[in-house]
C-alpha cells in the first residue's frame, strides 16, 4: 500500500487560547516496500503525522490516501484500515494489560479478525510471539508484567504484528533500550520487512539508526516536510540539518571533517560502507603493498 499525503494540516485545541497548529501542509509519499525514516524534533509534527496514517487522528485538512483507503472520505472503513496499518507507540510495553502474554497478544486479533477459529487464533499468536524472538510455550501463560523490559517490548510488538499489518509504523521503537537491545530490535524489524509486512515506517531521533536502516526518509520541522530522499542524500545536507537543530550520523560528521582536509568519501553513511569506502581509498593510494 502506498501512502500519499497532500497538504495535510492539523490543529490541536482549535478555537481556544491554546490552539497550536501541528501540521502546516504536509506533502509526503511513502512507496510500498520502503523502510522509511521520519526525523524531527519533539513538536515537529511527526507524531501527529503518523497518527493520521491509521486514522487515530481524524483528517481535518488536506488529503490522505493509504492504499485504496481514502481517509478524507466519510465512507472510509477505519477499522479495516487499522488492521492493515499497525502502530507501535513509544514505550509500547506500558500498554500491556492482560493477565497473560497470550491474552495480550491476542487482543488485536480478537478485535480485527473475529472470523478466525480458536485454533487459527492460537496459531497466529504463536507465530507473532516467535517472530519477535520469544519462546511461546515458555511465556504464553506468564504475566506480561513479570517479564524483563526488553521482553515486554517484544510482547507489545507481537500484539501489533499479530494481525500481520501490511504497513508497520513504530514511534521510537528502540528508545530506552541498551545498544545491544537496539541492534536486536532493528534486526527483528528487518526480518519481518518484505514479507507480509511490506512497508515499515520508523520515527526516530537517532540519525545513526536512520542511516543504518532506512531506504528513504523525511525530515519534519515546524509542521512541514523540509527534506526528503535517501538517507545518504539527506545527511549530505549537514548545514540545513544543523540549522534545524538536528544531528547527522557519526559517519557524516567524520566525512565532513575529512572533506575539510580535502578527502572526499562517497558513502551512504552506514558504518560498514564507510569503512569499506575508506579502505578502498587507502588501497587506491597504493598502500596495499605495505
Amino acid at each position: 500500500m502506498q501512502i500519499v499525503a497532500k497538504g495535510l494540516t492539523y490543529t490541536y485545541n482549535p478555537k481556544s487560547p491554546f490552539a497550536s497548529q501541528a501540521l502546516k501542509g504536509v506533502d509526503l509519499t511513502i512507496e510500498e516496500g520502503e523502510f522509511f525514516g521520519i526525523i524531527g524534533h519533539t513538536g515537529s509534527g511527526k507524531s501527529t503525522f503518523v497518527q493520521h496514517l491509521n486514522a487515530l487522528i481524524r483528517l481535518s485538512g488536506g488529503q490522505l490516501r493509504v492504499g485504496e483507503y481514502d481517509l478524507s472520505s466519510k465512507k472510509c472503513n477505519f477499522v479495516e484500515l487499522r488492521s492493515k496499518v499497525g502502530m507501535v507507540f513509544q514505550y509500547p510495553e506500558y500498554q500491556l494489560f492482560a493477565a497473560t502474554v497470550e491474552k495480550d497478544v491476542e487482543f488485536g486479533l480478537k478485535n480485527f479478525r473475529k472470523e478466525l477459529t480458536e485454533a487459527e487464533q492460537t496459531a497466529a499468536v504463536r507465530e507473532a510471539i516467535e517472530t519477535v524472538g520469544l519462546d511461546y510455550d515458555a511465556l504464553k501463560d506468564q504475566s506480561p508484567f513479570e517479564l524483563s523490559g526488553g521482553q515486554k517490548r517484544r510482547v507489545a510488538i507481537a500484539g501489533v504484528i499479530v494481525t500481520k499489518p501490511e504497513i508497520l509504523i513504530l514511534d521510537e521503537p528502540a528508545a530506552g533500550l541498551d545498544p545491544l537491545g537496539k541492534r536486536e530490535l532493528m534486526e527483528l524489524l528487518h526480518s519481518i520487512h518484505g514479507g507480509w509486512c511490506k512497508t515499515i515506517v520508523i520515527v526516530s531521533h537517532d540519525m545513526d539508526e536512520i542511516a543504518e536502516n532506512c531506504t528513504n526518509a523525511a525530515v519534519f520541522s515546524d509542521g512541514k516536510v523540509v527534506l526528503q530522499g535517501k538517507p545518504s542524500e539527506i545527511f549530505r545536507q549537514a548545514d540545513k540539518l544543523f540549522s534545524l537543530g538536528l544531528d547527522i550520523p557519526m559517519t557524516a560528521r567524520c566525512a565532513l571533517l575529512l572533506r575539510a582536509q580535502g578527502i572526499e568519501i562517497d558513502t551512504d553513511f552506514t558504518c560498514d560502507d564507510f569503512a569499506e569506502k575508506v579502505s578502498a581509498l587507502w588501497r587506491k593510494g597504493g598502500n596495499h603493498a605495505q
Binding site: 557519526m250 559517519t251 560528521r253 567524520c254 571533517l257 575529512l258 582536509q261 578527502i263 558504518c271 560498514d272 564507510f274 569503512a275 575508506v278 579502505s279 581509498l281 587507502w282 593510494g285 598502500n287 596495499h288 605495505q290
Partner: peptide
C-alpha cells in the same frame, strides 16, 4: 569503524569519536 579498517589492513590508530576517526584516517591516508 576503526576496528574494521584495521582488519582490512589499514595502519590506523585508535579512535572513539568522529573527530578522532577523521584525524586518524587523514594521518593514515
Amino acid at each position: 569503524i576503526c576496528k574494521k579498517l584495521q582488519a582490512a589492513g589499514m595502519p590506523i590508530g585508535e579512535a572513539f569519536t568522529a573527530e578522532e576517526l577523521a584525524e586518524e584516517i587523514c594521518k593514515s591516508l
